[in-house]
Amino acid sequence: MRPYSVIAVVACFTFVVGCESRPPVSDSVVLPAEATVGDMVSLWMEQAPDTLPKGLVWDSEAEHVAGRSLGLSEPMVLQVSSVPRVAHALLLWADLVVVTGPAEKTLYLVHLAHSDQGVRVDSDSLLDGELADAAYVTVTRTCPGEGTAYAGIINLATAMDVKCSGREELVLTGAAGRLKELLRTIAAF
């Protein structure tokens, strides 16, 4: 066998290995480095409209955040299937939550969303990570220590932008991603 043939075989093999290690590019989209929060939301609405069947609108206060840069270090390549999850993570980073109403979903600044706007969920689905990070939800939980741990929980909840009411039976409302961490902490009391 001629040396060039051997080289060609090695070249083909390494090329195949190289290609296999790259993620498939067919169903991916690119978010530019200079993208804003609003660009991310537009991308979500374009690429995954089935996850927003009744549409997504901005609350007037939240709309001011739309023009804020996401601050990406480089253009982000993401699979279309991961767009809603990434959008939720980036929205929460920008202190926005997705409130599900009877009609459409609305983006609110997390501290301006009202506690009665949270969708009631059970804590198991929250702890299992089944809910998207920025989804605005409400869970109830018995306060440990027969209500005596209330003050500590209020402090923790406030730091996480979670609204807390009730004393022996806590009603907690906030972004799913943060509520999950709060519930896990309370469970360890």
């Binding site: 060039y4 080289i7 060609a8 090695v10 070249a11 083909c12 390494t14 090329f15 290995v17 190289g18």
Partner: peptide, 19 residues
Amino acid sequence: KILTLTLVCVATAAFAKPA
């Protein structure tokens, strides 16, 4: 040409390998 192709392919395999 084959040597160039080889270098390109080796580089593809080396740099594209995910962390």
